[in-house]
Design a protein around this nucleic acid. Sequence first.
DNA 1: AAAAATTATGAAATAAAATTTCATTTTTCC
DNA 2: GGAAAAATGAAATTTTATTTCATAATTTTT
Lengths: 282, 282
Amino acid sequence: MNILEKIANELDTLSKSERKVAEVILSSPSTVIHSSIAALAKQANISEPTVNRFCRRLDTKGYPDFKLHLAQSLANGTPYVNRHVDENDSADEYTAKIFESTMASLELARKSLDPTLINRSVDVLTQANKISFFGLGASAIVAHDAQNKFFRFNVPVVYFDDILMQRMSAINSRQGDVVIVISHTGRTKSLVEVASLAKENDATVIGITTTGTPLAKECSIVLSVDVSEDTDLYMPMSSRIAQLALVDVLATGFTLRRGSKFRDNLKKVKDSLRSSRFDRKE
Amino acid sequence: MNILEKIANELDTLSKSERKVAEVILSSPSTVIHSSIAALAKQANISEPTVNRFCRRLDTKGYPDFKLHLAQSLANGTPYVNRHVDENDSADEYTAKIFESTMASLELARKSLDPTLINRSVDVLTQANKISFFGLGASAIVAHDAQNKFFRFNVPVVYFDDILMQRMSAINSRQGDVVIVISHTGRTKSLVEVASLAKENDATVIGITTTGTPLAKECSIVLSVDVSEDTDLYMPMSSRIAQLALVDVLATGFTLRRGSKFRDNLKKVKDSLRSSRFDRKE
DNA sequence: AAAAATTATGAAATAAAATTTCATTTTTCC
DNA sequence: GGAAAAATGAAATTTTATTTCATAATTTTT
């Protein structure tokens, strides 16, 4: 949370002297980040220890740490804001807005991810007998992309964007299989059922979805990707990009776990495409 | 200017020991803002005065001031430095790196885009009789996603990720049709041919590719998406995400151009999915 | 290739800044 | 009104940063 807001919020829990400090800071925060504790104390007409106590009351380690927080709050207004696209925006404006809110979503998504669970997922994936990716609509694209990536790893991988195929595949799954179910809303009935079916058949079910959704409840491991779809004009935008970034993370984790020899192999896969391309001039 | 970029820029004007400091800082800037000058010196295996001199060389008043700048740069979302995934990275680290470099790529991509051309593309798209999206490999996913989006607009749209289908479709195209060809490298022979075929048959060909590639030369309009794929472990990562963001931009431009009544329609499309979903509790 | 000049570096000393301790003052509550 | 609690600041201490200066490394000149 922005520390300036925090100061404003806690203004009434502060003592009289501490409030003097708060006021000086709020009135010209940018001066304060270049002041020593002595200078600030003098300006607020109180003693240095009071400033120190003030800082700790705001859950910082001390004055220098407080200044760091303050500096961050002042850092020219967060660039990746979720600005809404407006009816009258020019191409320039809506382009900027969409890119910015996409970046903001990625930032949010990263925060919602738990590295421990990513690690666990990578564990499970590296040991899987078979990997299946299921998604519908926009999430089908993510599943498709995941297949494309994991296919290069030379592991048995499939993707389905068809409800019936998903069901059949889920029913045929067994211990050692990993099923990754992708859904932003986590409320698509058929996908939740598929997750449940796969789990009943002893597959490890990894969900890529929003925290606390019905789908999340059915999964062995939930990789939460929480993004707001505010800016979207009735179609999934940020969510699928965050999901794709997560796929990249999983794929990267996979290759790292497999070691350098494995990566040489990946290079070969890539090089195999060369003949299908025009040469670079240089 | 972002101090991290500045450090990266001035890396070669620094002395040997100072460069050690720079490297430690670049590798984990967020640790540094909580370190004392002594701790940082120790980590870089150099002396404290060297750290101090380093700070001054970057036009800061000293170490505490430098930390302030650093804190501000970090607050601004992403360190712009393309940090490479390392063999020994923990899940936490590689997750952060991938998300960060994805965001950096989006930033880059946005800079390489020309709003005038986006506007022109939207023009062409809104007037198209038929829209086709072609891609292969990772770009096929982008084409797939584009179809998914434009399909909602109730316009004739197809996507092919099969070379033969693409060729046939290109040959059958005519004036008023728009063909969007997606390829990061812009060097995939068959795609370049398809673009050329479509153009010969009077379709408007829009290329989503890197500036100056063979594909770019065949297109009526080139939407340049220049990103570096440095961080990638032999598979397309940032490029396709930037392409997807561009698809969002085009789709958004399309809906804006079509006016508010059209957007009501989109809402209906979205609402039509409701019965397939579990209700929200609240 | 040696000598001189320049530049880079760190140990130690110094200075600055922040924090802790503790005695005093103020406020609160009965 | 007075005991208890909380707030406050002076001084001492500790931590941190900076300066000074001697030495080492590098570059330039001869």
